[in-house]
Each structure stands twice: as structure tokens, then as C-alpha cells.
Design a protein around this nucleic acid. Structure first.
Lengths: 158, 158
DNA sequence: TCATTTTTTTGAATATTATTCTATTTGAAT
DNA sequence: ATTCAAATAGAATAATATTCAAAAAAATGA
């Protein structure tokens, strides 16, 4: 057992469940829901933030409303050694790149990219990806329709 | 031009940019940042919610803190006709399934799944995916390390 | 251009919430 | 049982959210 592991009790999990569903829920509402004093709830939320259990409060915006209709997965191979992940770090710097995963199997990385349209994706590949020398090949899969897209975790009861 | 398209001005985009970064930013802080009256900002936020530009306020929770250390992408083929997406809908019902995309190319769906460990993934495949008759094949790619994972959109200045 | 209508913003008032702090309680370890 | 640390409650105050009427700004159409 190392010092970094985190103990979450039933109350913490309830807080996380509620906050995951609605990050703008007021502390007062949280307290009512949990039948606790607002001060006690606030204390717990702050600790969850400090412990980095809560990573971020974010607003999900409709990509369509912003005209970002192209989503693609790109499987990449890289020439870098197994230890390093500089390629990944470079990819991560690109704002249109939403995800970078090092994957098992033939390819090295799975990259998720969102742009306005196919032209913008082409731009991105020509002007950004091509600058990363270690990338040796890419295989792009275009998303035709997204049926579900979230990162809600399954939070246990206890 | 149809009635569903949405016009967002510079102020709306600023609101979205700030809220995307921190969903729990107070309306008062927003107002200060934008140099507007709080009531005017509130009005805009409510409209963005109504127009579904703002989809949801969510809290990103560390998967590791909850012991959810396995992430996988599963490329699936389905026997259903091109028109239907029942397979996708069934997949979307499973809470561990975070994403379901209909993709171009040889495979039919790209599915992103998060579970506690490989045993839980096995469980999921045996007890849930196997129930969906239309799935004819799956190709699972395990994520070894996630370097970046977010769905922050690139919001234009204007 | 001007008048009209609609939308947006402001400012003020009130309701609600956030936050702080101290006292109390709880729970765990001895 | 006693001690200690952590968590909670409760009360007080600071800050924020929310509502609404009036004013301003923007859009519309003659």
C-alpha cells in the first residue's frame, strides 16, 4: 500500500455521481440531496479537488453548433523507441487533437481529432502532423455518425 | 438557411470558452471577465442552454481514483443494414461504453469502453456484447497509456 | 432616413448560496 | 475508557443568483 491511494466512502461517491451529472449543481442542493450541512459537503468537495479525484469542471458544447462536424480516429505508427513518448506529447499539444493513447498492437498511437471539415483535417495533417518527424504512418478513420460520446464513469454504490 | 442554425457572436463564444474551461465559474466572475452586467450574462447562458449549444455541465473524475484503469477501443462489424443503427443504440445503453461511432471503412463501429480491469472487460463482452446478435466480429485494442483525453473544442475568436 | 419592433442590457431589489469559523460530534487507535 | 484526529453542524457574514422594470441597442421595414 502506497501513500497515493485514495479512500472514497459512500458520501464521496454520491457527491461524484451528482457532480458528474451536473457540475453546476449548487453546494446547497448537494447538501440537501445528501442530507448534510452545506459546510460539510463543501469540505468534502474541496478535498476531492485537492486529491485530484475531481480533475476538472467542464462544459460540453455541441460541436455542431460550432461547425465542427468532422471527427476522425487516426492510428499512427512511430519510429521512436518504446521508452519515449515524445511523439505523443507533440500530438497532445495540438488543440484539435482531443485524445492521444498509446496502444497495444501493431500501431503505436490512437489519436482522436475534431475539426470543422475534411479540408481542415487535411490542413492539420499537412501542417502539423507532418512536422512530427517520428510519425512513420497514419491510418485515418472518418466518423460518419456519433451515437454516443461521453466520459461519464460508472461510479459504484459503495 | 433553415430555422435550426444558430448564430453565436463574440460574447457567446467568450462565454463558451470560459465555461468550457471551468463549468463552475460563477456568473458574477463571468460578468466581470466580460465586463457586462451579471443579469445580461445569465440571460445569454440560459439561451445557450436552451439552444442546446451547451449540452451539459460535467465533472471530470479521475478514472484511476475510481479504479477504472482499463480503456479499450473496439472496432466492430455488424450484420444490420446500412439504414438501421440498432446495434449502436444497444451498445450506447451499456454504461461502460463511453463512445459509439459509426465509421467509414471496413468496420462498422468504433466503440470506446472503460472498465476496472481486463476481467471486467471480458465480463462485458461475454455478458453484454454477446447479447447483441447483430455484432458479427470485434477487434479490441487495449490502451496502454493515455497521454491526452478531453473533448474541449477549439472555439474561434469570432 | 425614420419610425417601429424586437432583442439585449442595465441596475436595483430580493432570494439564495458560498464561505468561514467555532463548537461539537464521531470514529479510530491505544 | 481516553486521547487524538477528522468530520460535521450551526450560525454569521460575504458573495452570488435571480428577477423584473426600464433603458438602450439593434434589427426591420416602409
Amino acid at each position: 500500500m502506497n501513500g497515493t491511494d485514495i479512500v472514497l466512502d459512500k458520501t464521496d461517491l454520491s457527491i461524484l455521481r451528482l457532480m458528474q451529472e451536473n457540475a453546476r449543481m449548487t453546494n446547497a442542493d448537494l447538501a440537501r440531496e445528501l442530507e448534510m450541512a452545506p459546510s460539510a459537503v463543501l469540505e468534502r468537495v474541496k478535498k476531492l479537488e485537492q486529491k485530484q479525484v475531481i480533475v476538472k469542471y467542464t462544459t460540453r458544447i455541441s460541436p455542431v453548433a460550432l461547425g465542427q462536424t468532422l471527427l476522425a480516429f487516426i492510428a499512427m505508427k512511430s519510429s521512436e523507441g518504446m521508452g519515449s513518448n515524445n511523439t505523443a506529447k507533440e500530438l497532445a499539444k495540438i488543440p484539435e487533437v482531443q485524445e492521444v493513447h498509446h496502444i497495444a498492437g501493431e500501431d503505436c498511437y490512437m489519436v482522436k481529432v475534431r475539426t470543422a471539415d475534411s479540408a481542415s483535417l487535411m490542413d492539420l495533417m499537412r501542417n502539423k502532423f507532418s512536422k512530427i518527424q517520428s510519425i512513420t504512418s497514419t491510418r485515418t478513420t472518418i466518423v460518419l455518425e456519433t451515437v454516443k460520446e461521453e466520459q461519464q464513469l460508472v461510479i459504484p454504490e459503495k
